[in-house]
Design a protein around this nucleic acid. Structure first.
Lengths: 122, 122
DNA sequence: ACTACATATGAGCAGATGTTCATGTATCTT
DNA sequence: AAGATACATGAACATCTGCTCATATGTAGT
């Protein structure tokens, strides 16, 4: 019985290469940075938002026009714009009833473009 | 009664700028490309996978070492490696009992790095 | 052949995500 | 002031995600 449970009792650490692990741990990105990068990518990880960002990278548009272009409801678009705003990927200005959105910086557009290029070449 | 429901009945298309919409639609990325790009970003959109890719970009590692470095269970790591394999972001080779993983191409590493740089500068 | 080891995978579950529907808020028109 | 318009938001819902736990698969050593 004692011999049978050996695997679990001795712990899972058996095949590790300590030197390699130690080195890799040093080179590992800080947890917070990983989390923030992941959150950025997560926002880009939705086809609706990709489309929105892609057209907003070309031109400033109002909510209604965004909805018309990507063929989604105004509500859905508005919800997603909130996500994009939260991630600071877009900026907006109000002009009376309308809200005009555009991409926040070229960095974002570049990242997006690079992703698109990657899937094209695959 | 008929007047009251006007908003819904006439449809949501009232504020659109037809010329702008038509132009933006032409410039809109094809749906499949948007979907594929989103799927790529979605894979990058998880802190565990970001960490894994980041260390695999520096060095080829076996599953057990990856688990030790990022401090997650072997099972969790294995599941995520499956996702990364599915997206062709990593490659692997077997050597006896061990499986050695590394990043698939520099493209992926560059994309990752760009994301990290973006959150650092924010 | 038997046991230990390294990795892969299926089931199950809690939490996150993206849409719709209904409604709220602010602005414009009359 | 009242209604219409443009947008935002809360609730509800179905679906997806990422983990754990248990177990399966394949390899090596004895």
């Amino acid at each position: 019985m004692a011999t049978k449970k050996k695997t679990r009792e001795t712990c899972e650490v058996l095949c590790e290469h300590p030197a390699t692990v130690r080195l890799a741990k040093k080179e590992l990105i800080p947890a917070r940075q990983a989390q923030q990068a992941a959150e950025l990518f997560k926002v880009l990880g939705d086809a609706t938002r990709v489309k929105m960002l892609q057209i907003l990278a070309k031109k400033e548009l109002c909510v209604c026009d965004i909805a018309a272009v990507i063929e989604m409801s105004q509500s859905a678009v508005s919800h997603q714009l909130r996500v994009l705003r939260g991630a600071r990927l877009v900026k907006y200005r109000r002009d009376g009833k309308m809200a005009w959105y555009s991409i926040n910086d070229n960095h974002v557009a570049a990242l997006l473009r690079q992703g698109v290029v990657h899937v094209r070449h695959k």
